[in-house]
């Protein structure tokens, strides 16, 4: 547990020293949400109809941004070799990286949910459900993305390959996330959909770090 916390603390400290990376993801999320009103026109009903799916898609795209540097930066300066020799198993290293990614990218996005939701005319009653759904959906993306980042490490054009691997696999998160927000917006309980998202997260929690760790083990 101690090596895991040491690596996680390092990830958070590095993110604090480079706050621009986190800020870029948050601004990207708000900007994508802001593009929809321009494209669809100022019709509140049409916007509110689109809001759940647009919010989830924008959050996943924003969380995807820093993924190609997740292992790449450490591989270039030799830190990854040291981390692989740290005594922490590969799966533990991948899990620490995934949690670090969520804490520095997924969680800060939640602070921008009111801004993005207001731009998309989502009823205020659904903002809480939207934050919960986005928190879980970005968690799914952090896990999938970490495994994919480990797999594409060293591949030419890895930055292009990564979204092609991750986005199709995150379709279930989009479906359940958008359904949860839509249910809350129309006065129903978002609980069943949030539980399905949680189940997806629980499924990936062991699988993705093991896959990522195996990919990291050998070059």
């Amino acid at each position: 547990m101690r090596p895991f916390l040491a690596v996680l603390a390092r990830e958070l400290r590095l993110a604090l020293r480079h706050p621009a990376d986190t800020l870029a993801a948050v601004l990207f999320f708000v900007l994508v949400a802001a593009l929809f009103p321009f494209g669809i026109g100022p019709s509140p009903e049409a916007l509110a109809r689109l809001a759940p799916g647009a919010l989830v898609a924008a959050a996943l795209l924003a969380a995807l941004l820093p993924l190609d540097r997740l292992f790449g930066a450490d591989a270039e300066d030799g830190s990854l070799d040291q981390l692989r020799l740290s005594g922490l198993p590969g799966a533990g290293l991948a899990a620490a990286k995934a949690l670090g990614h969520w804490l520095t990218t997924g969680a800060p996005l939640l602070a921008a949910v009111p801004a993005a939701a207001a731009l998309l005319n989502l009823p205020v009653a659904a903002w809480g459900a939207a934050a919960a759904a986005l928190g879980l959906a970005t968690g799914v993306l952090s896990l999938l993305g970490t495994a994919a980042a480990a797999l594409t490490l060293g591949a030419r054009r890895g930055g292009v390959l990564l979204p092609l691997l991750v986005l199709p696999l995150s379709i279930p998160a989009v479906i359940f996330g958008a359904a949860a927000i839509e249910a809350a917006a129309s006065g129903l309980s978002p609980r069943p959909f949030l539980l399905l998202l949680l189940a997806l997260l629980a499924l990936l929690l062991p699988v993705a770090p093991i896959a990522g760790g195996a990919a990291l083990r050998e070059e």
């Binding site: 590095l14 300066d77 030799g78 070799d81 040291q82």
Partner: peptide, 14 residues
């Protein structure tokens, strides 16, 4: 073991 490779594994921001 301790491995010191070509790269110095120093994080510039820390």
């Amino acid at each position: 073991l301790r491995y010191v490779g070509h790269a110095d594994a120093a994080k510039p921001a820390l």
